[in-house]
């Protein structure tokens, strides 16, 4: 369970959001809503651990209820930033996925990586092994980042504009992995201007401007 209490952040005199509280339990998905510049990506960066909040707390509990929080929430979160994929651009898709998985302590075999790449239409020997990431199209890079997300094996996903650059097939694959993740008692916070891939999923919406949560 991810528990965010009274999170406040701003740049100099400009307050982005104030006293935002939200609880995310296993199997839940919360969509973060707000106009451009409302601080949605900043909010995600804070949860991911890149920025510190000015006020408020973020705690992760191993179960569905609050108890003793974990010592390092980064072990339980996988973050997908907006406008970037977090990939070493001179290295191949397989090298990147192996690196990030190993860093999580997952000794993934080639077969597991190929299966994840298959889901995203990237399981071609040239694409996965020989092509540097900087030769990938925008959509292919995003697909690879989503393959890393799938391989991470962590319960809580933080997705900032996850479907940027995806085509129809990619959107379908995204919807399916998100659905499987939630069915497997995973959690997800999403920032997205396109809500179509979230249709049919048990989504709550957090309005960052007011702090209100609606179903």
């Amino acid at each position: 369970m991810l528990k965010i209490r009274e999170l406040t952040f701003g740049f100099r005199s400009r307050r982005l959001f104030e006293k935002i509280s939200v609880e995310l339990r296993p199997g839940e998905l919360v969509h973060i809503a707000g106009p451009n510049g409302a601080g949605k990506s900043t909010f995600m960066s804070i949860i991911a651990g890149i920025l510190a909040p000015q006020k408020g707390t973020i705690e992760f509990f191993p179960g569905a209820e609050a108890g003793t929080p974990v010592d390092d929430r980064r072990k339980y979160l996988e973050y997908l930033p907006a406008e970037a994929n977090g990939m070493y651009t001179k290295m191949s898709a397989v090298e990147n996925l192996k690196f990030w998985s190993n860093l999580r302590g997952r000794d993934v075999s080639g077969r597991v990586i190929f299966e994840a790449l298959e889901v995203w239409g990237l399981n071609h020997p040239v694409i996965r092994d020989q092509l540097a990431i900087d030769k990938f199209s925008t959509g292919m890079k995003r697909r690879l980042a989503l393959a890393r997300l799938q391989l991470s094996g962590v319960p809580c996903w933080l997705l900032d504009e996850p479907i940027y650059g995806l085509d129809t097939k990619g959107l379908e694959a995204f919807h399916n992995i998100l659905k499987s993740h939630l069915n497997a008692k995973g959690m997800c916070l999403v920032v997205s201007h396109d809500l179509k891939p979230l249709e049919g999923l048990p989504t709550q919406t957090l309005d960052l401007a007011t702090g209100r949560i609606s179903k």
Binding site: L77, P81, M87, Y88
Partner: peptide, 10 residues
């Protein structure tokens, strides 16, 4: 590609 930022979230 924000690798530095992502490393900090691991």
């Amino acid at each position: 590609d924000k690798v530095f930022d992502l490393l900090r979230t691991y």
